[in-house]
């Protein structure tokens, strides 16, 4: 437990670095001569034709995110199994093979439905 409390206190210390610099140090010493044109969103020097919030983006990003959830949970599930792999022996290997087979069916289904190909 003690080691985790170190992590917590370290997080607080680290948090103070950006807070101190962004809100206390830089406002005192930085230049600030903002004007309307300077604060416009950047678009290669011309007035912005539209803002990012006006646009929609490709649904593929969502699909990738959904697939990621599946595979990341799988990875986390594999970690404790891998640590005890030598003790579990053949039984553990077969169990995990079944799990991976189910997962691979889903993986190839996604592949066939062209979720994985970007173009």
């Amino acid at each position: 437990m003690a080691n985790y409390s170190v992590l917590l206190v370290a997080a607080l210390i680290v948090l103070s670095v950006p807070v101190l610099t962004l809100f206390i140090i830089t406002p005192l010493i930085r230049a600030s001569r903002a004007n309307k044109v300077k604060l416009e969103p950047y678009e290669c020097g011309v007035p912005a034709s539209s803002l990012a919030f006006d646009h929609r983006f490709s649904v593929r990003y969502f699909l990738i995110a959904v697939l990621f959830i599946v595979f990341d949970v799988e990875t986390v599930f594999l970690f404790p199994w891998a640590i005890r792999f030598k003790q579990l022996g053949l039984f553990g290997a077969v169990e995990m093979a079944v799990f991976l087979a189910i997962l691979l069916i889903g993986y190839f289904y996604a592949w066939k439905r062209k979720v994985l190909s970007w173009v």
Binding site: Y42, F53, F57, I64, A65
Partner: peptide
């Protein structure tokens, strides 16, 4: 949050890439 088309696309690409 930048509300800029380049930023948004860069952010999305980066997220997709890091996640993949």
């Amino acid at each position: 949050a930048s509300n800029n088309k380049y930023s948004l696309m860069g952010g999305l690409r980066s997220a997709a890439q890091m996640v993949s």
